[in-house]
Write a protein that binds this DNA or RNA. Structure first.
Length: 917
DNA sequence: GGACTGGAAGTATAG
DNA sequence: TCCTATACTTCCAGT
């Protein structure tokens, strides 16, 4: 009996793996066996002329680069990832399909252009693979808790998880099939029905994912830390300042405070984590290879994510620490573990892919997950996918990723020391305790669009290239503060398995962030019911100790579930879409006795220096005596200025409060001045800081660059299916651009629009989250990590991440620095809005919507929080937009894109040359 | 018996 | 430096 799943599998090859830098050579693998363990992957770098054997076609088709499009003729170094370990396909897949795949794979492998391949196979370890976030640091797993019954191993469960740094996509492809046997996909689409049971394995460990890194306690470091209770990190007392440096940016954060940083060196994490760890076999031998400059170059070129990782170290981390070995991952009981077979996988996909999966080629590295892999974790190097901290649009052109149902706003995450609290049914479906506010509602993510061929289509499933191809939906826990959305350091998605879970899933690590991969199957209309995800809380002390970690966990309990999908387009490009849920408060209910005021929305984001404008704040726990204080802080966190806004008590309600913006201390400012304000219900009952900007009273604002975090959502919305597709989705347009397209055409929709479904786009975003693109709660003072992250970059990658290098993607610095933004030429920083500096003339400002000038009174009524940047002028209305700004023709975007593209190509060329040299 | 939950206790941290 | 209020984690018991 072939289940739908199986079918799905069938399309997907198990493995895949090659990624061509220059060209689109990524092989994709199938979803097969999501649940399976992850095989070990070795990466071999080769220079591909572009035409290698069978694959050749495949690869070449790839991206533009490859094809001449820019692709330099040079041979592009290719990194091939080969899974060692067999692809159980069959087993995993349950059968049929799988098996076939495997065979094919084998054959395919042979097809690989070995000749051109470097002999050496390099295994890259994911940097940080160890931990969810930072391997080098203690991983949560390492935490005592991990020792608890839930063994780390368990977390890794069985193999379900594998690491792949940088390559998100990989997995997707890799595992469409998710669960091999067993359960059915619960995708609404129904089709799923047939599916076999995905979860079969699920059984894995109870905690499954829970332990991030299972570190065996080998880590001395860890050991130290592991005192019974989390001691303050580093021994020193850490101050958590919510406000200032608090969470947010605290630059101040003692990074330094990691005296011992285990990781100090990027090097080997003390404790190996099973996950990352590559098996000795794969690793050790290969490691050497790193020396190969070509490889490095290739890697660098490919790396899009975790720059840091790579930068530092690919090599560094690459070195496998033997530590890992120790950990034995549980292997799912699969029939075959077949390692033996393992080898074969090399590139199974190759031929197949070439022929059948072209689409996937593009930029994904697939890592098959096989049972086998437990013992041998796979490494991925996926250069091309955008880092998790990059902002991506929820829709682009015909594609749209939407969340149909939002999770509940509160959920009690579980510690590793606890059993899962996120029971599938309970978490998402409200299961037995659906009424509990702490359970999450079912979430359904749906991807729509007609890919490739028919753009207009509102088809539910992708057709054209993806027609029969399942996609992998990635889910990770992201932040919900006012900064740019990024993986949450203190929370990880937790894979839930069990009878109640109908959706197969598979865990993977990407840049130390656990990512749950869920298949989006055409037969289910590309919809998925997320009932397999829970939220794991990592101990603050563990995370804070991580090298480079700048966030603090205390009071940093809001998260969002972030979903991503990577679409390979016929052109070889990869389009990445992302949507985030509304914020979810993960603190224990008991810890919220104080009823802190919460600001979800603010009707104004800017005001002229003289103040006087009224601003409506929407949120919770406002009281009659609530105060609204505006503050300006110096870099060091000291308050430079503080003023209390007049609160109109008459209109005060628990959920809204109307205030009059106080005059700024300096009426003569010439540039926008970012400040913060918060609602205070009394001592220790303060809301998070919200961002606000005073602008010069008489400076005609031309175009305000939309704030990234604020507008982004809107943009997404705009780009929704209904909206005219972005004319030129390709190449990640700079933020500004992105927005631009729609802008002219569509005035910024009231936030209500967003209500649609997409979270990120969703109107509700505000709820809890500051970070949402909306200006809502802002904690972070303009700090190092200012919120400004790269705005939504619509990410359509040219196949291999090369382009990324050119700046389309932000150089993702280590995971921790989302701040880094893409510096695409012409791109304006997302931050723009808040940057004190003069507003950068943006190419297009979304904000520039043709709205009437000055929107009048801000604070009135139902204003949705969204207040466009105001023009300083006259203290006028909130929107500077008012100024009618010339709308750039859409062509402009294209033009711009073309320019960018050109630059990129040049850049690539030079890079290639260098690397070759 | 095991998993999921809600609640509470103990300890650390912030103010 | 001490005290109090919170926040974080871990445990425990009920379902």
């Amino acid at each position: 009996m072939k289940s739908a799943e199986e079918d799905a599998y069938s399309y997907t090859p198990n493995v895949s793996l090659s990624l061509a830098l220059g060209g689109p050579c990524l092989a994709s693998s199938q979803y097969h066996g999501l649940m399976q363990s992850s095989p070990t992957i070795s990466v071999s770098v080769s220079y591909d002329a572009g035409d290698d054997g069978p694959a050749a076609g495949y690869y070449t088709t790839g991206g533009p680069l490859a094809n001449g499009g820019g692709a330099p003729a040079l041979e592009s170094p290719r990194i091939e990832i080969t899974t060692y370990g067999q692809f159980p396909g069959d087993d995993d897949l349950g059968g049929g399909g799988g098996g076939g795949d495997e065979e094919e794979e084998g054959a395919e492998e042979s097809c690989l252009p070995l000749g051109k391949r470097l002999n050496s196979i390099v295994t890259l370890t994911l940097p940080n693979a160890d931990g969810y976030r930072d391997p080098s640091c203690l991983s949560p797993a390492s935490s005592v808790s991990s020792r608890s019954g839930h063994s780390d191993a368990s977390s890794y469960e069985s193999g379900f998880s594998y690491h792949y740094d940088h390559s998100p996509q990989n997995s997707p492809w890799t595992s469409p099939s998710v669960s091999p046997k067993g359960s059915t996909l619960a995708l609404p689409g129904g089709g799923g029905g047939g599916g076999g049971g995905p979860r079969g394995n699920g059984g894995g460990s109870p905690l499954h994912s829970s332990s991030p890194c299972a570190s065996p306690g080998t880590d001395p470091w860890a050991g130290a830390l592991r005192g019974s209770r989390p001691n303050s990190p580093c021994g020193a007392k850490r101050k958590y300042s919510f406000n200032g440096g608090g969470t947010a940016s605290h630059p101040a954060r003692p990074a330094s405070s990691f005296p011992y940083s285990p990781g100090g060196s990027p090097g080997p994490s003390p404790r190996g984590s099973p996950r990352l760890s590559v098996t000795e076999e794969s690793w050790l031998p290969n490691t050497n290879q790193y020396t190969n400059s070509a490889i490095l170059a290739a890697i660098n070129a490919l790396t899009t994510d975790g720059v840091i990782d790579m930068g530092e170290g690919v090599p560094v981390k690459a070195r496998k620490t033997s530590l890992d070995p120790g950990i034995s991952l549980k292997t799912e009981p699969r029939g075959g573990e077949g390692p033996g077979s393992g080898g074969e996988l090399g590139d199974p996909s190759c031929g197949r892919l070439a022929l059948k999966k072209e689409s996937y080629c593009g930029g994904f590295l697939d890592v098959p997950q096989h049972q086998y892999s437990w013992s041998k974790p796979k490494l991925y190097v996926s250069p091309s996918l955008p880092a998790l901290d990059w902002h991506l649009p929820s829709s682009s052109g015909p594609y749209s990723l939407q969340m149909e149902v939002e999770p509940r706003s509160h959920h009690r995450a579980h510690y590793e020391t606890e059993g899962s609290r996120g029971g599938p049914s309970r978490l998402w479906r409200g299961g037995t305790r659906s009424s509990s506010p702490w359970s999450l509602k079912p979430a359904v993510v749906r991807g729509t669009g007609s890919v490739g061929c028919s753009r207009g289509g509102g088809r539910e499933y992708l057709h054209g290239y993806m027609e029969s191809e399942p996609l992998t939906l990635q889910l990770f826990i992201g932040t919900a503060d006012d900064r740019l959305l990024r993986p949450h350091a203190f929370y990880q998605v937790h894979r839930i398995t069990g009878k109640t879970v109908s959706t197969p899933s598979h865990e993977a690590l990407q840049s130390s962030t656990k990512v749950l991969e869920i298949p989006l199957l055409p037969e289910n209309n590309m919809r998925a019911l997320i009932d397999c995800a829970g939220i794991l809380k990592l101990r603050n002390s563990d995370i804070e100790l991580r090298k480079g970690e700048t966030d603090i966990g205390r009071k940093n309990t809001r998260v969002r579930m972030v979903f991503r999908v990577h679409l390979n387009q016929p052109t070889g490009r990869t389009l990445s879409l992302q949507v985030a849920s509304n914020p979810i408060e993960c603190c224990d209910p008991g810890d919220r006795p104080q009823e802190l005021p919460l600001v979800d929305k603010q009707s104004l984001e800017t005001c002229v220096a003289p103040g006087g404008q009224r601003m409506l704040l929407s949120g919770h726990n406002f009281q009659q005596d609530s105060k609204v204080l505006f503050v300006e802080k110096a870099q060091d966190g000291h308050h430079v200025w503080e003023a209390e806004a007049k609160v109109e008590r008459d209109g005060a309600k628990p959920t809204s409060i109307l205030v009059e913006v106080p005059p700024y201390r300096n009426q003569r400012i010439s540039t926008p001045v970012p400040v913060n304000f918060y609602v205070c219900n009394g001592k220790r009952k303060k809301s998070q800081y919200q961002r606000f900007t005073y602008v010069p009273a008489n400076v005609p604002t031309i175009k305000m660059e939309p704030r990234d975090d604020y507008d982004a959502p809107l943009l997404c919305v705009q780009r929704g299916p209904a909206l005219p597709p972005n004319p030129k989705p390709y190449y990640a347009p700079p933020p500004a651009m992105m927005s631009s397209a729609p802008v002219g055409q569509q005035p910024a929709p009231p936030s209500s629009l967003s209500s649609s479904s997409s979270p990120s786009t969703s109107p509700k975003l505000h709820d809890l989250s500051p970070s949402t693109p909306f200006p809502t709660r802002g904690l972070s003072p303009p700090g190092p990590r200012s919120p400004a992250g790269p705005p939504h970059v619509s990410i359509i990658q040219e196949t291999p991440g090369r382009y990324s290098g050119s700046g389309l993607y932000p150089p993702s610095s280590a995971s921790s620095s989302p701040g880094s933004q893409p510096s695409t030429p012409g791109t304006t920083g997302p931050e723009a809005p808040f940057s004190p500096g003069p507003a950068p003339p943006s190419r297009l400002s979304p904000a520039a919507s043709p709205r009437g000038p000055q929107q009048s009174q801000p604070a009135k009524g139902p204003e949705r929080g969204r207040a466009p940047p105001q023009d300083g002028e006259g203290g006028g209305g909130p929107l500077p937009l008012a100024l009618s700004i010339k709308q750039e023709p859409q062509e402009l975007d294209q033009m711009y894109l073309d320019d960018v593209n050109e630059i990129i190509r040049n850049d690539l060329s030079s890079i290639s040359v260098n690397s070759n040299a």
